[in-house]
Design a protein around this nucleic acid. Structure first.
Lengths: 243, 243
DNA sequence: CGGTATGTTGACAGTGATCAAGAAAGGTGG
DNA sequence: CCACCTTTCTTGATCACTGTCAACATACCG
């Protein structure tokens, strides 16, 4: 716990305590995703040497702003990260959420195109981009990890972009199913982020998100255990909504 | 011209003649994008050896269907390719258009997630995926080409997904500017694909696309030279619409 | 020249945004 | 532990944007 840098110290002792338990419980060791081949000790050491953090963030903190130099790329250790763009009229679009284990901010451009913010309290690992880039050029295993990581993100955002001509009901259903599979896959889905975040991700208003959830509940497709917990009562019906 | 395989023989002699001129004029040689370093003769030879085609397609031909085994990946030599998903109700979403020089269908999954179809007559180069994959694992240059290729696609689709909460006017403006920069960048933009394709790409109806273009024309932001050619009279105003 | 595919314009309807008010949850201080 | 306050979520009423249906115009091709 001593190696955790603290940013934006929390005022809630209870929450902080719980958070530290999670933080020290898992994820602080080097993520195994990088260690593709046990024989590649060199790659492992090289990548480890450029690790910084993890740094702890409170909810709604900004990790990087759009336009910031892309000196670092990041990995979620714990919590949820949102990557978004703000528009002049105050609107905001959330391109993607990132869950623990996911790399984000990886780019070949000089600056980040999107802001990265924490949607919940979060632990973030930093990597120097230039170092990672040059290691990737030498070490095949690192390069292929980056490639598969990028392709996973590509696949995810392709699915998301398919929502552009879909109804509110379909968007929400898609989101719930996605969230369910990305977490544990059980029928009870915890919504770690606010409805505002969900709305900005789905391109809807918070009112429509709320109304749609109510509508799905009335149709006995889902059930609200609490405002932030939804039970997927009838997953098949939810899948049918996707078409 | 002898090495061009012909698929779906065209019924239009005039169009076909014109098309062959284009085809033989450029792009039939191995794309230089792969030859990142002249010293990497091995990589070049390896990649060249798995090249197939180019194969010529007529407009609205299917290159691969969603769900097809991902045995090959492709590169556009000439023409426009659309990658899309069909929904049960007959609706269709076009995730991306691909212009000459672009790689598409590259995935680490067993099957293609999206169909690839030609939006215009097109010349397509094939590569055996397994071969390319294994060469990439050995040859750094090939891997980094694939990586940068994937990242370019990621950036592009991220921009596209930002349209999810934007108005019709903004979507069309974004499309026109994108198309302009992707082709020659001059003020006269040729629309190589149908309005239906544009509509399915932007998540709008063809009527709305048509109406929005008319509206932009009335606002003296653009001008219709013909149904398929649009002049960006006031590019600054167009950019302002993006916000 | 005629036929088909594609694009344009109008009238109307429906989905979702906006505005507004109230309810519930979570954090703060006594 | 409880009362208060702030934030978040829910629900209702209304309006605007975009989809749908229909008719017409234009371009393309044989």
């Amino acid at each position: 716990m001593g190696e955790v840098e603290v940013v934006n110290a929390s005022k809630s002792a209870r929450r902080q305590r719980l958070f530290y338990q999670v933080a020290s419980g898992s994820g602080l060791s080097f993520p195994s995703a990088f260690i593709v081949d046990e024989g590649q000790k060199l790659a492992k050491r090289a990548v480890l040497s450029m690790r910084r953090g993890p740094i702890r963030y409170r909810r709604n903190s900004t990790i990087v702003c759009e336009g910031d130099p892309a000196d670092y790329i990041f990995m979620v250790v714990d919590g949820i990260v949102r990557r978004c763009k703000a528009f002049q009229n105050g609107a905001r679009a959330i391109v993607a959420f990132h869950t623990p284990g996911e790399l984000f901010g990886w780019t070949d451009e000089v600056n980040h195109a999107l802001s990265a913010e924490t949607a919940t309290d979060a632990l973030i690992l930093f990597f120097k981009r230039s170092a990672l880039f040059s290691v990737a050029a030498r070490e095949q295993k690192v390069a292929s990890f980056l490639l598969s990581s990028t392709m996973a993100e590509l696949r995810r955002i392709q699915d998301h972009s398919l929502l552009i001509n879909r109804s509110a009901k379909c968007r929400v259903a898609s989101f719930l199913l996605d969230l369910s599979t990305r977490t544990d896959g059980t029928t009870a889905v915890d919504l770690p982020m606010s409805h505002q975040d969900i709305a900005d991700h789905l391109g809807l208003s918070i009112e429509t998100v709320s109304r749609t959830i109510t509508e799905l509940e009335r149709a006995c497709v889902i059930e609200r255990a609490s405002a932030r917990t939804i039970v997927l009562t009838n997953r098949a019906a939810l899948v049918r909504l996707l078409n």
